[in-house]
Write a protein that binds this DNA or RNA. Sequence first.
RNA 1: GCGGCCGUGGCGAAAUGGUAUACGCGAGGGCCUUAGAAGCCCUUGGGCGAGAGUCCGUGAGGGUUCGAAUCCCUCCGGCCGCACCA
Length: 961
Amino acid sequence: MSETNSAAEVAAPHRYTAAVAADIEARWQDFWDANGTYEAPNPSGDLAGDPAVAARPKKFIMDMFPYPSGAGLHVGHPLGYIATDVFARFQRMTGHNVLHTLGFDAFGLPAEQYAVQTGTHPRASTEANMVNMKAQLRSLGLGHDKRRSFATIDPDYYKWTQWIFLQIFNSWYDEDAKKARPIAELVAQFESGERAVPADETGTTRAWTALTPAERAEVLGDYRLAYASDAPVNWCPGLGTVLANEEVTADGRSERGNFPVFKSKLRQWNMRITAYADRLIDDLDGLDWPDAIKLQQRNWIGRSEGARVDFPVGTEGDAITVFTTRQDTLFGATYMVLAPEHELVDKIVPAAWPEGTHEVWTGGHASPAEAVAKYRAFAASKSDVERQADAKEKTGVFTGAFATNPVNGEQVPVFIGDYVLMGYGTGAIMAVPAGDQRDFAFARAFELPIHCVVEPTDGRGTDTSTWDDAFGAYDAKLINSANDEISLDGLGVVEAKAKITDWMAAQGIGEGTVNFRLRDWLFSRQRYWGEPFPIVYDEDGVAHSLPESMLPLELPEVEDYSPRTFDPDDADTSPETPLSRNEDWVNVTLDLGDGPKRYRRETNTMPNWAGSCWYELRYLDPHNSEKLVDPAIEQYWMGPREGQPTGGVDLYVGGAEHAVLHLLYARFWSKVLFDLGHISSAEPFHKLYNQGMIQAYVYRDSRGFPVPAAEVEERDGQYFFEGEPVKRELGKMGKSLKNAVTPDEICAEYGADTLRLYEMAMGPLDVSRPWDTRAVVGQFRLLQRLWRNVVDEASGAVTVTDAEPDDATLRALHKAIDGVSQDLEGMRFNTAIAKITELNNHLTKSGGAVSRSVAERLVLLIAPLAPHVGEELWRKLGHTSSVVHADFPVADPAYVVDEAVTCVVQIKGKVKARLEVSPSISDEELEKVALADEKVVAALDGAGIRKVIVRAPKLVNIVPA
RNA sequence: GCGGCCGUGGCGAAAUGGUAUACGCGAGGGCCUUAGAAGCCCUUGGGCGAGAGUCCGUGAGGGUUCGAAUCCCUCCGGCCGCACCA
């Protein structure tokens, strides 16, 4: 406290000041901890409590848990935590059993990079960071059930992450039942012959019992929901690890670190999330999520309906299978394009160019093989950025081969081109240049025929040589599309699609199908700081899962945990796992049920998303050593119920940046666990809410470098730092931009309650807005005036009276109760605070002592938002139990309406008069009063009346003749 | 390029078909004070007017309606997502 303030303290020793705030906040935080105020009872088990509380309707209110970053918190971080806390407190006061807690997502790259920078073990630095963050969060007065908190790095937690991995590993997706089933049931089907064993590479089929263990493992690998494969993966030399598609940006760089990412064939673990593509889309319908996030997930999964069509090629009965969404335009397919790396390319390339091959097609190369090799090298040399920049210009080369268009027998040339992506569909397309802009551009570049099969509706005519672009509108009719057996001519697109699809199926040349953009989830990383895979390999290289009794498989203590990174631009590198450096840990003798044998451990670790895929479940039953979660407890908190048929967390708050990463992975794991009968909800999060970001002004000097925002001065709309003018822009808050404001400094200046109120009052929770330290004082003043309405600043005595409040005050009170209740329920915290402020201002202006009944209800209204002041004033008002579990006030409808309301009288929509009328006035009566009003009569000036619109009691609008 | 969201006082914002600017910041004035970066009170969208008043006003233009910040169309500006997805 500065010296100048001490004079004020002498004059008003019991005023609400920062010192008072600090005192009561520390006191109540200790009280809450000591009394377990925020502990939510489970219906059974070690966290069971008051059965009466457990019998209440439940609310599970959750935040996206934080990384324990070394940088500490700035005021932007706790925005969501404060919001869920306010909401949770309101729910507690309205008769709910509220589960609200917070853990830490502590594995992963950031924690590891920080540890490497500081030269400490990741566990040590992570745990130190968690201690700091917990202290910062505790000082905000967040009401968490601390018994349920954990970190994903706790062996007791990741034991179950590993257990779930094994559940997924030991499952397959039954396409008929549309659900995951234990792999043992698949083995039984193979053994009994109920299901045929798939043919091997040579095309021969053998009985299950005739296969070696390694062969069986290979067959099962094609079914398991977690499997190792040699597919091309995203290899990031700069980070020294492979990455999931979701972690690679659109321009082919790592989301973290912004290093180049290369496609490389490496044996890696994958999760068969594609098996759930349909369900992941369909189940979005039942979720209460922002439309924007649902849309992002739908786009990411990318479901499109179309057909697979086989185009015969070569002499050995091969066919190029394409995926198309426009099978109706098959008659217009005049060439084909394969992705450069398509496996059929080498097989179909002839020794020499066919007679008379166009020079444009050969690219000037002597042979097809040379042309293909050169083009492949060219395509591979292009980064994704370049490839996309060149998107308008279509490149490719003729393979020398022709395929047969199955609907008209035409021989169509087969090209390779990098505008066809190996990772989508079948990696091959039929090109319909008349209908597709990309095919059109390619056809023009290579002088390929363009057949019009959809009649243009824009007057351009059917002579494609005059066209500037493709035409493929859905509302047009097919033409030139008939053979001896089928005609699509005259049909609309939709009917034509249906007809040709049926015909192709009957002919055995194609079938209707659904294609997804979603790829399987690459699940292994070359990192130390992650969950080890509970997998060992025998001498034949066959993967075995560890039995549950060997979990958790703990991370070994190693000397060197840093990742092996490379020159970020050097694609000719391959990953090295830190765990492989520890031979003693890697090579082990284990008894997996058939006697002690030598095994080699898997040395990859899981991605940092693993721990966050299921943490909501562990909050429910965090100490259970027998099970992931007790079924009865899981059912209680997560189970489907009326109005929430999918079940799940009642409210999940976090940033929109997790739209397709965490939220998709977590949904996937939930569905697997649901299918296997471990949990009762197939969706983890029923309601999702994305909070906005707290932004901050960034001030840059003439060189563009950020200067410390706290030291910038404003004069007449200009900004100066050390006398020099600086430019202001809006950006993120953070240390690097020198504009971070910490909750600690705001708490020291005003207290946590003020910080909470300010963050909630800034604006709607889902909108981003700039932080303004100067404006924080407004919420401090609210608390000060509230305090003054209850406590005498000179004596500290409670000043409330037992006299009945006057009518105007009662109406102000009940309107506030009504509005605040609705606003809190709807998470409109900013307007809730405005209504509390209005009520408090009314009491201040009324003068004299406030009635006890009004003061108490005002305290209850603000308690969820400012819990320390709430507790303190509640106690001062004579209550001995915590305000946390007090009942939220209920509005009396009789006082929610005003005694008299102002009715506006408009003429042609312009306000001409205001009348004080009863809220219950009838339309007829109001019209009579309005028309008799002298101002209205004067404004009408004798004009006749055409029409009168009456909306009693607020409005009358007169339309003169 | 495609899709989505959003433009309201000096600033954060309220009002989602019915009195535009609630609530807060800032600013101006006053009280208190030796002093005020504390606290309290008043004023605060713009124009005209001494005043009562009156006209204009929600990015721009148009439309629907008795009535539009709100619904529709076109344009301008900003933010976000996806991006050769067949």
